[in-house]
Amino acid sequence: MNEVTVFIMGKGYHVPEGLTIMKAMEYAGYRLGRGCGCRGGYCGACATVYRLRGDYRLYADLACQTPVQDGMYIAQIPFTPAERPPYQLADLQPRGETLLSLFPELARCVACNTCTKACPQKLEVMDAVQAALRGDIPQVAELTFDCVSCGLCTMRCPAEISHHHVWQLARRLNGAYLTPRALHVQKRVQEVAAGVFKADLDALLSLGKDALVAAYKAREIES
């Protein structure tokens, strides 16, 4: 197995090539607590920044999804302090100014695009900030749908925006108020409450195993 040298918070370790940053830390002897959650790229717990030897840039990514490189200097971000103003969804209107009134710091965006460069999901973060400033809630929701709330953009933002909380509110407003409701769901909820399916279910619950198996085999399968 080929080895590479990585520097975890400045201290060097030899680890097998090809490991993710997360597994490399464990291989080096770390027992992770913070900085590790789903291990699959969904929860955003393992936000990590790193530099490469001979390169001025500060990179940001998820430790569970990023292979180590030789000469990598690694530090995990254990927590992102971020402001979420109190609100109840039911009290809010899905209007253009709603986001800006709860998160006025959006207006401090200087369009530097650092947020976009920091995003491990490769989302167009700055475009989402601009859409939020315009009050275009559906556009914010669409652009940020794949956000895992890792907080890396928030830690890098010179305007000190708490991005993931803005996105969360925009998506909820979009889902609850700006998308047509599924009428078939409402109809079915009423039917269940009215007991439309009660007799069918009572009958199924009273069947013995052989009769149930027969009913199962006789199911029509939608094509």
Partner: peptide, 12 residues
């Protein structure tokens, strides 16, 4: 609660 399910334009 505002979950964004995949829907047709009419909400289906």
């Amino acid at each position: 609660l505002g979950v964004m399910y995949d829907k047709e334009p009419d909400g289906t």
